[in-house]
Amino acid sequence: QPQYKMRIQTAVPSSSIYFDLLKKFGDRIEKMSGGRLKTEVLPDGAVVPAFEILDAVDKGIVEAGYAWTHYWSGKHPAAGIFSNPMAGAGVGLDQLSHIAWLFEGGGYDLYKKFYAEVLKVNVEPFFVQPMGPDPLGWFKNPIKNLEDFKKLKYRSPPGITGEIFKEMGVSAVAMPGGEIVPAAQRGVIDAAEWIGPADDLNLGLHTVWKNYYLQGLHQSTDVGEVLINKKFWDKLPKDIQEIIRGAAMASMTETYTYNVYKNALAVKLLREKHGVAIHDTPKDIYAAFVKATNTVLDRYAAKDPFFKQVLDSQRQFAQVVVPYWTKILDLYAGLGNAALDTGAVKK
């Protein structure tokens, strides 16, 4: 029987929890295929750096890549709203209802269309890791409201997200992960967001700043993707293709649970061992962020028909889902808070 080997060039360092999860994804494929498809997961920069991954997979330099669609928003703005429709597309989708849009609301079809017809690249795309939300991040001093936030220099993700912060009046700067800690030490920035508690712990921002805001709106949802070179994909036998589809679905659940636990452990460690204070994001930031998001997204939708098609699809889906789902989220928030308030769970 023919043997296949799939190298996955990722956009994360080997110590990231998402790197671990990809290895689990790869192991599962190897086992399910009875060893016919071998996988190798490569850290950021091993063959190419993060922002070159799509081009590398398209050309076949590596058989597969791992990143987030918003990494390609320089090639087309709609890339930004597949993995990370900011503030739940400005219509309040949470991570689970966003995935519901992907699977039940026509999102996945648009996603495939995006690569095949809009970018015209040779990739077979899969969503594998729902990892939202990204924390609002680390702050030198606590903030009470939006006005406090506006006085700071803040490291935000680049692209449309950065534009939304600008629209709100926050002076956002973009810089690669490796520069965040040195810049924080030098006072070049006063606040910064990175990925999530577990990965932030590795970056070491807690050694510089002690104020941590877990509730971020800019990447309230975020889904990692695996891109497979189309030529390589087409050569795979039908059953192995189905195995990859199944492993991708399995990885969705696995990430969801892994994320909850690993991040919770990291938060516990940050609080108890490193003296980090966890704050709630001030409420006036929510409204301002949603407003700025809709302004910026509308601006893009006016310029590009495909962007509009994706955004409209998300907004229509939200009209159905958000009224119901928000009630359910209130249930869980209420339940958790009751457990904390009654002392059933220690704060």
Binding site: P13, G178, E179, V181, P182, N202, L203, G204, T207, V208
Partner: peptide, 18 residues
């Protein structure tokens, strides 16, 4: 500062500051 240590930090899972 050293670019090599900046890259190595995330690889070994130790904060760059350390």
């Amino acid at each position: 500062p050293s670019v090599m240590l900046i890259v190595m930090g995330p690889v070994v899972g130790v904060p760059t500051t350390h």
